[in-house]
Design a protein around this nucleic acid. Structure first.
Lengths: 226, 226
DNA sequence: GTTTGTGAAGTATTTCACAGCC
DNA sequence: GGCTGTGAAATACTTCACAAAC
């Protein structure tokens, strides 16, 4: 009978993490619809687009408010704006990159972050040969500059692209600098305090979990029929 | 192909997908332990390493068999071998890459696939200017060669790195060529038949689901452990 | 007519807790 | 002593189904 269950004194119901992870998908789909000039969408239509059931979408949205109109559906623009606000996407996020090797350079050159409001404003590397170099318009700084730079530039998020052996050390430094959101490209699980979020980008693991299904004949899991 | 499989266990109960997705994590951790010369590991120790509860690990493994010894734990080498066999990682997988733009080239040069048994053996692009070029030792082929190449080279998995607007078309072609596992790097959800597996690699979405927590002050949820 | 929002019902997944074994 | 493997219990998540709204 441990007294570990600290009471949940949160506003309403705690939003499940799995719901939060689906919201960006909705944002994506709504953005496309908006670009296509679609003004209104039903949960059914949106669900068809991203392979989620209409009930799931409605339930997910209900954690945050009431955004639809019965009989009509959702205003694409309004719902998109609300979701962007909820996710904190209505501002620019300044991002720091750790590790400017091959992978880090590819990340710096990736044109997909900026249009979504994620601006890489600083790059760091432990290798003195990298420090001082300009990469994609950014001067590579030594690791000991991390804390200062995080504060000066208002960096809230870090992308880690260092060798696996250095990940934990780098992550510890980031946590010490009050960075609470980290995208990790290295194939290791970093240990972080519970208030810090880590997302791993790991194509090898993605492959490895699919080979199971190529290897093990799937006995008639329900087929899509509709 | 070895036809002999341990039928007794995995046939009865369908293995939940979330379990299959955790197995590669176990493989990763066990590989490291093995390299470090650790011979035996308990579910507790393994769980500490990858932030999974010991009960979860034991339950997950129980879907596939009994690999441990009471009072001792698991032989690292043995469990690693069994998991690799279960996931189908005890063979080489030949992979096709679609799209050799900036991102595709980075993927081709990424040194992390081969050591894990994933060999990119062919590359395709719809752009005639790319066709015929050599990239990382591979000749870029036109899309109409896809079906033939998949068969000739025994390609079982595809990596898609084409612009978002072309993803669905490319995925349809892959499905038509009997490719049943796809890693998609583009920021769109592709529609596939239920027997085809898709994993999306999407750093922007990873960022977008973390900003929620940076924006919304998290009350409760204290971690006990240290 | 259509479609939302939501309690209730139904599944899925995780955790508990302990027998059995080392 | 320690630790696994596993039914049972507890949670978490998804889907149902329908009143209310347009």
């Amino acid at each position: 009978m441990t007294a570990r269950s600290s009471s949940a004194f949160n506003e309403a119901t705690e939003v499940p993490e799995v719901v939060v992870e689906r919201l960006p998908q909705y944002v994506r789909a709504l953005t496309r619809l908006s670009q296509q000039g679609v003004a209104v969408v039903s949960s059914q239509q949106l669900g068809d687009l991203i392979q989620v059931t209409p009930a799931q979408i409605r339930k997910d949205l209900s954690y945050f408010g009431r955004f639809g109109k019965q009989g009509r559906g959702y205003s694409v623009k309004y719902l998109l704006g609300e979701l962007r606000r909820i996710l904190g996407l209505d501002r620019e996020w300044r991002v720091g990159l750790i590790g400017v090797g091959r992978l880090g350079r590819a990340i710096l050159s990736y044109p997909g972050f900026a249009p979504e409001g994620f601006k890489i404003v600083a790059a760091f590397d432990a290798d003195p040969r990298q420090v001082g170099q300009m990469v994609a318009g950014i001067m590579v700084q030594p690791m000991h500059r991390l804390g200062e730079a995080v504060h000066e530039l208002g960096i809230g998020i870090a992308i880690v692209a260092v060798p696996a052996s250095q990940v934990q050390e780098v992550v510890d430094q980031l946590v010490a600098c009050d960075v609470r959101a980290i995208v990790n490209y290295a194939p290791v699980t970093a240990q972080v305090p519970s208030l810090v979020r880590v997302r791993n980008i790991d194509p090898v693991m993605a492959l490895q979990s699919m080979t199971y299904y190529l290897t093990t004949p799937q006995g008639s899991t329900r087929t899509g029929g509709k």
